[in-house]
Design a binder for these strands. Structure first.
Length: 751
RNA sequence: GGGCGAUUAGCUCAGUUGGUAGAGCAAUCCGUUUACACCGGAAAGGUCGGGGGUUCGAGUCCCUCAUCGCCCACCA
């Protein structure tokens, strides 16, 4: 018989190579219009059972600071693959999208943009400046959501959230108020990390250390002072109140407790000799000049020894007015002046080069100045009673701390971190965690819900902390805003209706199944989400944390503007299609490991999309007479093919279940190309044209069956090309048991 | 100072519980046959960083060294 069957013409689109540019936007539109990204619609339309188990992921909200980069694209590829897989498996699957206002990052971006137009934020004032920020944030948001669509992400847009919208703002104020009432949030004078460039405090996590060579000066305060000290910051010495030595240091032991009145560079100092075990007798002279106001460690020593402190450096990194010969000077100038003064008075004993890590602000690059300031903090060691606890190891009503919650949830195995080596890093971070400074002196963000009497201009009395703006015209709100991680810490449940704990989404989808994010924000974000949901809900925010690595360029370098090696996902999508971009970001990318991306790699997977396209054409040309429902007697060869495929398909399912997406995607690639196309299709050619009618029918049926099943298995990874093929498959070879025509909700093959 | 990771073909990487070394890209040769040249076939390429150990058997487990990279802490 004639091999071809003219009764069913091949859809014309298969006669040309696959064109992702024309196909993808149309396909995405069909998905969006179908409503199947929304689990409620899936249930309404009968695609998902109403009592099916839930599967939920909240999208780590991209910062509204511009555009998405390849790291975001990798995140979207991984999460979308998992979401599509679970949706096809019949779960009520919610992937909730949103964006992050990213307080300091966004504000400093807008400031920079305005500076180019010679506009300064203080000239605009708070209100006007914030208008600029909101406008910028809106534009970024629009770009970002377009990019998310471009990647094919099947997020439920009807539930989109923003960390600074009204619903999230209510959640923030509610959380703040509860923590304040429980004594977990307090206001206090502490040494904070002051960024003189950004004019704000920052948290320990926003500091980047840079190694620099500086000079270590050894000197005496005065000729008759008994102990020489060493310092890298001579200018701060006008604020010294003590010299600390190790209690067992025999060189200086006899001076402990003595006090000396000195005039140092024109400033009168009262220096007490104190003993403190934290002093290393081996370093420098074994004696430390204590400047409590400008060093965290000195501050602690001063605290232990009941010493007063006085500020000598101000918020603009200048010396204060009343410090002798360095009054009002810039820090570098003051340093030179002090050194010259020491030399002139023959007090300088030694100058040597040492390596030092200088603390700089991540966003502005400013050199951090430790300053004592009145700020808001979260106390991570404060015991409190956790009323309703679902956390194993912490009984309901028992006393615990935020630190303990963060530790127990992971230790008990309630939260699993993939790969597990990051659990160690997580514990290490918790152990080193100090109180979290949450107030920022910037304008963009959640305003702290605390109010003061107008006559209390320095805000020294206890404020009114309230969820809603309190009544009274004599009240002014705290001008500070919250650290951006405070609102992102609530993300898994503030997006699901909390603080209304009866909200249907909250009850159905929390705790979420998976949090997928970069390993670089494990401490900043992951730990804080665990803290917040542990405290506010007595529960975990997610069951599994999957950490992906950094996407580097083809040579393994970090992508950066200055290197000019940035691969823009949108450019790549335009050139090669989203499916190819997705695959290139999935394959060769183990959890927790950095991966490399090159254009060659993406091009390779574009070819794969075309391969699928053409294999489909071949199958369609040969299966017009096939009906998948009616399985003919199969040849020995085809029976073996199907057996092998069954194993393969079960393998793929297991790989995805265990988050081994890189393996699943690579195996699919390999099977489709080198088994299905190179072997099974090639062998079928001979059989189909042979005299053996039974064998021919068997081969045709097998081709149709495998194509149909492979499209389903491939769909989570390459949604566009598979859907585009699926919509053109004739009914007779579309192996599906639903009445819906879209592949996105077609049931996953059972083995 | 503490911790983590990497080291496998020219390049980029897989190798899931230990069982005869794999892919993509590049390079070589051949090829247009019922899809696909965004293709097919063939051949080539590796003492799996060095050394030691456990085991019938180690790329895989243990010890040790080396190189590269990352994270955390930080000494005035």
């Amino acid at each position: 018989m004639q091999p071809n069957n003219s009764a069913a013409p091949i859809p014309e689109k298969f006669l040309k190579p696959y064109n992702p540019q024309d196909t993808e936007p149309t396909i995405y539109k069909k998905w969006e219009e179908s409503g199947f990204f929304n689990p409620d619609v899936c249930v309404e339309k009968g695609a998902t059972a109403a009592d099916a188990p839930a599967f939920s992921i909240v999208l780590p909200p991209p910062n509204v600071t511009g555009t998405l980069h390849v790291g975001h694209a990798a995140m979207l590829a991984i999460e979308d693959s998992l979401v599509r897989f679970e949706r096809m498996r019949g779960k009520r699957t919610l992937w909730l999208p949103g964006t992050d206002h990213a307080a300091i990052a966004t504000q400093s971006r807008v400031e920079k943009n305005l500076e180019k137009e010679k506009i300064r934020k203080h000239d605009l004032g708070r209100e006007k400046f914030l208008e600029h920020v909101h406008q910028f944030a809106q534009e970024s948001h629009d770009t970002i959501t377009t990019q998310i669509r471009g990647m094919g992400a099947s997020v439920d847009w009807s539930r989109e959230a923003y960390t600074l919208d009204d619903a999230r703002s209510l959640a923030v104020r509610t959380a703040f108020k509860k923590m304040y009432d429980d004594g977990l949030i307090y206001r206090g004078h502490r040494i904070v990390n002051w960024d003189p460039k950004g004019q704000t405090t920052i948290s320990d996590d926003e500091i980047v250390y840079e190694e620099r060579t500086t000079k270590l000066y050894t000197f005496r305060y005065s000729k008759d002072f008994p102990i020489p000290i060493a310092t890298t910051r001579p200018e701060t010495k006008v604020g010294d109140v003590a010299v600390a030595i190790h209690p067992d240091d025999t060189r200086y032991r006899q001076y402990i407790g003595k006090e000396y009145e000195i005039i140092f560079a024109g400033t009168p100092l009262a220096i007490k000799i104190v003993a403190d075990a934290s002093v290393d007798p081996q370093f420098g002279t074994g004696a430390v000049g204590i400047t409590p106001a400008h060093s965290k460690i000195d501050n602690e020593i001063a605290w232990r020894n009941n010493l007063n402190s006085g500020t000598v450096i101000d918020e603009h990194a200048r010396m204060v007015p009343n410090v002798g010969i360095v009054s009002g000077m810039k820090i570098t100038e003051a340093r030179d002046t002090i050194v010259k003064w020491l030399e002139k008075n023959h007090l300088l004993e030694k100058v040597e080069d040492i390596k030092q890590n200088v603390a700089t602000a991540e966003r502005t690059g400013g050199i951090i100045e430790p300053l004592p300031k009145l700020q808001w903090f979260v106390n991570v060691n404060q015991p409190f009673y956790l009323k309703n606890s679902k956390i194993s190891g912490i009984e309901s009503g028992s006393q615990t701390t935020l630190k303990e919650i963060m530790r127990k949830t992971v230790e008990s195995g309630m939260i699993k971190i993939v790969p597990d080596r990051f659990e160690k890093i997580y514990y290490h971070w918790i152990d080193n965690l100090r109180d979290w400074c949450i107030s920022r002196q910037i304008w963009f963000g959640h305003r702290i819900p605390a109010w003061y009497k107008k006559d209390d201009s320095r805000r020294e009395r206890s404020p009114i902390v309230s969820i809603e703006t309190p009544e009274g015209s004599d009240l002014i709100q705290d001008p500070d805003t919250l650290d951006t991680w405070f609102s992102s810490g609530l993300w898994t449940f503030s997006t699901l209706g909390w603080p209304n704990e009866e909200a249907p989404d909250f009850k159905t989808y929390h705790p979420t199944n998976l949090l997928e994010t970069g390993y670089d924000i494990l401490p900043f974000w992951v730990a804080r989400m665990i803290l917040m949901s542990g405290y506010l809900l007595g529960d975990i925010p997610f069951k599994t944390v999957y950490l992906h690595g950094l996407v580097r360029d083809g040579k393994g370098r970090k992508m950066s503007k200055s290197l000019g090696n940035i691969i823009d996902p949108l450019d790549m999508i335009k050139k090669y299609g989203a499916d190819a971009v997705r695959l290139s970001l999935l394959i060769g990318t183990g959890p927790g490991n950095d991966s490399k991306l090159s254009e060659d790699k993406i091009r390779g997977y574009k070819n794969f999309a075309n391969k699928i396209w053409n294999a489909t054409r071949f199958v369609l040309e040969n299966t017009a007479t096939v009906s998948l429902e009616q399985r003919p007697p199969l040849s020995e060869k085809n029976t073996a093919d199907l057996e092998a495929f069954k194993t393969f398909s079960a393998d793929i399912t297991a790989d995805i279940e265990h988050y081994r997406l890189y393996l699943a995607a690579e195996k699919l690639y390999h099977y489709f190309w080198h088994t299905f196309a190179d072997v099974i299709i090639e062998e079928s050619k001979k059989v189909i044209t042979s005299e053996d009618e039974t064998a021919a029918i068997s081969a045709r049926w097998t081709l149709a069956y495998l194509l149909s099943a492979l499209l389903k298995l491939l769909h989570p990874f390459m949604p566009f090309v598979t859907e585009a093929i699926w919509e053109s498959l004739p009914e007779n070879i579309k192996n599906t048991d639903t009445k819906h025509s879209l592949l996105i909700i077609t049931p996953w093959p059972s083995h």
